[in-house]
């Protein structure tokens, strides 16, 4: 209910601003909706949305799985932490644009280059978050598992993973927004489809309604993914915690 009120307020502010500034710079909500409907009817909206979503999914899964594994290793093994730390700092501070441009130069304007570049941008934050999570693991529970001679996999699954779950969820949430921002840049620079490509076209034509139609549709999709997937996962992972934490 509160969410609806908040959304309605957003529409009111938008509409008022559109009336004040004028339709060329900021089109009103109905104008944007018209473009959305037209693009959806032609199928272009779904094509571009699908292409972008596929890239997001691939890059996200790649970065999360690789980043979590490396982060866990660096949290557990001192040597890995020492060796990996300079690389991590470098990657963390490398601008996304540099990675994307270099990837396109070295690997060509290919799908693989785009996905790799997006994944490399997300990777270091996943590593950092999971390394923190691993460092915060409760040693006394490790000892308990060791005394009771729990096999490695069972201990990992039931003792370690539940402690890492909040960190995975936090990393997934921030990662999703990061990947979503970077994927558009990658598409703008070197892909012939996707929301980023469409926004590039709209920018060249100064077609604001089209620009908003695509970005808002994608924002809506991200919102749905967040409420339908990320939040239920978090709720499930933290169901044992006392409520209202």
């Amino acid at each position: 209910m509160l969410r609806l009120v908040s959304f309605a307020l957003f529409l009111v502010v938008w509409w008022t601003a559109a009336l004040l500034v004028g339709g060329a710079k900021l089109p009103s909500p109905p104008a944007v909706l018209d473009v959305m409907i037209a693009e959806a009817a032609s199928g272009a909206l779904f094509l571009h949305l699908g292409a972008t979503l596929a890239r997001v999914a691939l890059a996200f899964v790649l970065a999360m799985s690789l980043g979590s594994a490396i982060g866990y290793l660096m949290g557990r093994v001192k040597l890995a932490d020492r060796l990996g730390d300079p690389w991590l700092i470098l990657l963390l501070n490398l601008p996304a644009l540099v990675v994307i441009v270099l990837a396109y130069i070295w690997a060509g304007l290919t799908e693989a280059a785009a996905i790799a570049a997006i994944a490399i941008n997300k990777l270091p934050t996943a590593v950092v978050t999971l390394r923190e999570g691993t460092r915060a693991l409760d040693r006394s529970l490790d000892e308990m598992a060791s005394v009771f001679a729990m096999p490695r996999w069972r201990a990992f699954r039931h003792v370690v993973l539940p402690q890492l779950a909040p960190y995975v969820a936090a990393s997934a949430r921030s990662g999703l927004s990061l990947v979503w921002k970077i994927v558009l840049v990658a598409e703008l620079l070197g892909r012939p489809n996707g929301v980023g490509f469409e926004i590039g076209v709209a920018f060249q034509l100064f077609d604001t309604p089209r620009l908003l139609a695509y970005s808002l549709t994608f924002a809506a999709v991200v919102l749905v993914i967040e409420t339908a997937l990320v939040q239920p996962f978090e709720a499930h992972a933290s169901r044992w915690r006392p409520r209202a934490a």
Partner: peptide
């Protein structure tokens, strides 16, 4: 030998 242990603090898994 199988070992059973009761620690000073219970050391249960809070999420199970």
């Amino acid at each position: 030998a199988r070992v059973g242990m009761v620690f000073q603090e219970p050391r249960l898994l809070p999420w199970r």
